[in-house]
Design a protein around this nucleic acid. Structure first.
Lengths: 195, 195
DNA sequence: TAAAAGTCTTAAACTAGTTCATTTTTTTTC
DNA sequence: GAAAAAAAATGAACTAGTTTAAGACTTTTA
């Protein structure tokens, strides 16, 4: 089996068991996508046609506010799921951009195949139930942090939680994730490194 | 059928179909809970024993930060689900308080019955898959707002999105939800009403 | 490998929101 | 229905983070 297929099957089989046949069926519903550094996987205004699993690389998911300032909602690396679920589900235009920070490879599932998947292998209801449950828990945790921690504390948390990601992104993008300006991010990093 | 049971069955049947037998089975797994105004349904330090569906009343879910300031994560009224999912799932102690703002009535499902439910009526995997998916979409939307809108804009959004809730809660609790002090909330309300 | 483009740093002036303190108004309780 | 408790309003002094601007450093591209 291809490495990328092994990766996604392992990811799914953390929560549900699949027979060989089901694995094959699942893989047949996926589309391979490659995206070069700096290229967009998706842009605001489009409807999200796929949900993605990253097998290689690093991408950022961000939106632009009324003043044109970028807000990064997540960085996605190998073994992560990404996309704009709101747009994927509602079929309304997305507010997000997904841009490759490194040359990246992904497996996408289209909306048609996503719906088909539940009919063909109902066990996937359980997989997504658990996946969404865990996403919710980590979203709730993050939004608590953004309410109750200072920017400096959020930066320290980020480094602790995502040590693998910190070195693959720019300070500017990190500022967009933490929710502050690049200038203030620079001050914080200088200060924290001095400590 | 009791009114509260009708309400929860209607809620569930928005996403999945149930036979009469399944409805009865489901209801048999629920526990009725009443909580008086100002009483706690749950307190930080306890593990969340139940997830709740509100059939009557109004409650607030909040946490206290390191400085002891309350941050309200949601207001829950009739036809809403509430609880601390992170604690309910991981069985770790909760950081949340759930306090009744009005005399309230709820239907709770225990962790044992929640697990049992998926075995007995696997269709509930789909129900929770969709429920969590929708929660995620609204959480993502809210955390975008808390990043990119000013406190005044968040207040205006809240009034528009939850007109039924606004009149049932204090300004102080609303400040705890919006993420500002009660003093600044008061200033905003004065200003917005003048406009 | 040079120039262009983007990123990072630093600093001063500024603003959204906080803190603290006091008074008024509303709600709760006995 | 009076007293106590809680919530709301107001204002002045304060702070975390923004804005603007300019120079230094890095990365990308031709």
């Amino acid at each position: 089996m291809e490495y990328s297929h092994k990766l996604i099957i392992d990811n799914v089989c953390r929560f549900i068991d699949l027979t060989e046949l089901e694995k094959q069926k699942y893989i047949s519903l996926l589309t391979e996508v490659k995206v070069k550094k700096k290229a967009y996987l998706m842009q605001a205004g489009e409807t999200a046609k796929y949900e993605y699993f990253i097998t290689k690389g690093c991408l950022k998911v961000y939106t632009l506010d009324v003043d044109g300032a970028p807000h990064v909602s997540m960085f996605a690396i190998e073994d992560y799921w990404t996309g704009d679920m709101a747009s994927f589900i509602t079929k309304e235009p997305s507010h997000y951009f997904i841009k490759a920070i490194e040359d990246s490879e992904l497996l996408g599932i289209s909306r048609v195949n996503y719906d088909l998947l539940f009919q063909e292998i109902p066990k996937f209801e359980k997989f997504y139930r658990i996946l969404y449950q865990r996403s919710l828990i980590s979203y709730i945790r993050r939004s608590n942090h953004s309410i109750s921690l200072t920017a400096e504390e959020r930066y320290i948390e980020f480094k602790k939680k995502y040590p693998k990601i910190v070195n693959r992104i720019t300070q500017k993008d990190l500022a967009g994730y933490i929710g502050i300006t690049p200038e203030f991010m620079s001050k914080i990093i200088t200060k924290v490194n001095r400590m």
